[in-house]
Design a protein around this nucleic acid. Structure first.
Lengths: 152, 152
DNA sequence: GTCTTATTGCGATCCATTCGCAACAAGACT
DNA sequence: AGTCTTGTTGCGAATGGATCGCAATAAGAC
C-alpha cells in the first residue's frame, strides 16, 4: 500500500477519534489501537484476530475490551459486523462503499462485490409487499470454477 | 389447510422415511415425530420450538436428540437451516421451491420470496469472477411501510 | 492537579450447540 | 417371535462465542 494511503487512513482515523470523543466516547489506548488495526486491515478479521493484532500495540488488552469496543464502534457506525455461515463474527471498517460478499467455501477468502441492479430489485420486491428495507445481507458461497479447457 | 394437503404431506413424509431408511438412517419414534412436526410447520421454528412440538408426540424426547436429528436431516437434504441475524438457527423442510427470506425486524416474522432476476444476476457476477455458486443467502431485514396518506 | 465518570481486566456467566458414554431399540436375518 | 448388530437415545458435561458484574483505573473537562 502506498504512502498516500497511509496518510489518508491516519487522517480518517483521527477524524473518527474526534467524532467519537464528541459523542462522549473516550479514546483510550486500547481503542486507539483498535481503530488503527481496523483501518489497516484489508481483510475481514474476527474478534480473536483483532485481539491478536491489537496486543502488538497494547500488550495485555483483554478480549472483553475488544468485544466491547467492537460493539461500541458498530453502534457508532464506524465498523460493520458480518456473520458468515457458522463462523464467528468478522468485522470491517464502514467507511467504504456498500458492498456484498462472496465467500470461497474452500479457502474462506472473502471477496467484495456490488450490484446496483440487485439492490434495485431488492427494493422493488420489498416495496411491492409493503416494506422498507432496513438492511440486507447477500452472501454468495462460491467455489473456483474448474479451469475450463477452451477459454469458456 | 385442506385434507388433500394432509394426505400429500403424509405421503411425502413416508417417502422421506423410506429414503432415509435406505440410506442407513433408522426411523425412530423421535425421528418420525420430528419429520411429522417439520412437515406440518408452515413457519420457521428453531430447535427449542421443534423440541416443544415434538414432545407432544414423544414426551421425554431430549433436546440433544432434536439437535442431532436436525443435523442429520439437514445433511440428507430433508430440511434447511437458516441463521438469521443473531438469533438461534431456524429450520424448514426443503421440499419447497428455492426462495429467499424477508425478516420483519419489528415482529420477527419471516416472509418468503423469490426473484429469478436476482438469481440470474448473482450467477453472472460469480461467473464473471471465475466462481460457481455453491449456495447463497439473501435476507432482507425490513419494516412495514408507514401507512401512506394518499395511496402511494 | 483534581474530580467525575467512562472504561478496563478479570473471572464468572450466558446461551446455543455439541459430545461422551452406557443403556436402548431399529431393523435385518433366522 | 428370538437374537444380533449397530445406529440412536437421554443424560449430563463440555464447548465456544459473546456478554456481564465489579473493583480498580485512567480519559478528559474544569
Amino acid at each position: 500500500m502506498a504512502l498516500g494511503d497511509m496518510a489518508t487512513k491516519q487522517q480518517r482515523t483521527e477524524r473518527f477519534e474526534q467524532a467519537l470523543r464528541e459523542s462522549g466516547v473516550r479514546i483510550t489506548r486500547q481503542r486507539a489501537a483498535m481503530l488503527r488495526v481496523l483501518a489497516e486491515a484489508d481483510d475481514h478479521p474476527d474478534a480473536v484476530e483483532l485481539h491478536r493484532r491489537s496486543e502488538v500495540e497494547v500488550p495485555g488488552i483483554s478480549l472483553s475490551t475488544v468485544y466491547r469496543t467492537l460493539s461500541a464502534l458498530e453502534e457508532k457506525g464506524v465498523i460493520q459486523r458480518h456473520q458468515f455461515d457458522g463462523a464467528s463474527a468478522r468485522f470491517e471498517h464502514a467507511e467504504t462503499d456498500h458492498h456484498d460478499h462472496m465467500i470461497d467455501v474452500e479457502t474462506g477468502d472473502v471477496i467484495e462485490f456490488c450490484s446496483d441492479r440487485i439492490e434495485k430489485l431488492q427494493a422493488e420486491i420489498a416495496a411491492e409487499m409493503g416494506y422498507d428495507i432496513v438492511h440486507h445481507r447477500l452472501e454468495l458461497y462460491v467455489r473456483k470454477k474448474p479451469a475450463s479447457r477452451k477459454s469458456n
